[in-house]
Design a protein around this nucleic acid. Structure first.
Lengths: 147, 147
DNA sequence: TTAGCTGCAAATAGTTTGCAGTTTT
DNA sequence: AAAACTGCAAACTATTTGCAGCTAA
């Protein structure tokens, strides 16, 4: 069985058809879909499923650490939450033009000295660092250069 | 005259009392206020001023590059836009507990090699890098340790 | 004078919640 | 049977927009 489903079960949560469908839909999706997008993909198979169910399930998954929820802001849809099954530490690149989000390996972790310096200066106890690179994705860069 | 007001005027925008008050309110405020907060501070002096005016003015200011608008997410209020008169490149630390936001000097710019590597791997044309450090601010760390 | 602004109210977008009835375990 | 879940609708939060009247330049 899918690892996410197994974890849901272990956590005492019920494996309803809706949940199994949502998990199947997001488990290998690296495009950072929104709740809206998932809902629309599932609608054909579950015409009666509600948004609340999609949000509830995504909330359970993110509570269990099985998906990450991101608010990457930028452009108009800055308020939209995106979901990412990749829960290992990594950064994101967001396209200013089309809103596309891609994962970047966390190849350059913040040096301890830097984190320490931030803690010294700000008094913060830093837990995580989030980096977002904004610019134009390959496709949109090409379009722009043709204008 | 205040530099922001001067720039507004240069851009052909009118210096209404409401705008001057909003500019005065945000110009030296390093606490990253929300539109809501600014609105409430101004209400005593301008009981009839509407939210739309606050948003319109902040939008003009950010369009002219006089303030930065941030969506730092985290906690519940992830959708809230915050405004920062500091438009020089810098990073932010956000408190997980109280939501406080502080500026951090951009003391460690991304090395060109790293940016280049990201552009190679992702195909993106990177314009800016945003870093957000999440954790507990000094005050909230202390509280937690007392529990 | 007139382009642009203000205030009000209503519209949007994304997300959350209350609750009666249903389903997994 | 019990605890949890679903669907529906309504509530909420943050932000935007349409428009009639007002005002800075």
């Amino acid at each position: 069985m899918n690892a996410m489903l197994l974890k849901l079960k272990e956590a005492g949560l019920k494996l309803t058809p809706q949940r199994m469908a949502i998990v199947r839909e997001i488990a290998d999706d690296l495009t950072h879909p929104t709740a809206q997008e998932l809902f629309e993909r599932l609608r054909p198979a579950f015409p009666t499923m509600s948004f609340a169910t999609v949000y509830n399930t995504l909330d359970s998954l993110s509570r269990l650490g099985l998906v990450a929820s991101l608010r990457l802001g930028g452009a108009k849809d800055g308020a939209t939450t995106r979901f990412d099954p990749n829960t290992t530490p990594h950064h994101h690149a967001v396209c200013d033009a089309c809103g596309k989000v891609v994962d970047l390996p966390a190849a350059h972790p913040t040096p301890a000295s830097h984190k320490n310096e931030i803690e010294m200066t700000s008094g913060f106890n830093v837990r995580v660092e989030e980096r977002t690179y904004r610019g134009l994705c390959a496709g949109c860069s090409k379009e722009k250069s043709l204008i």
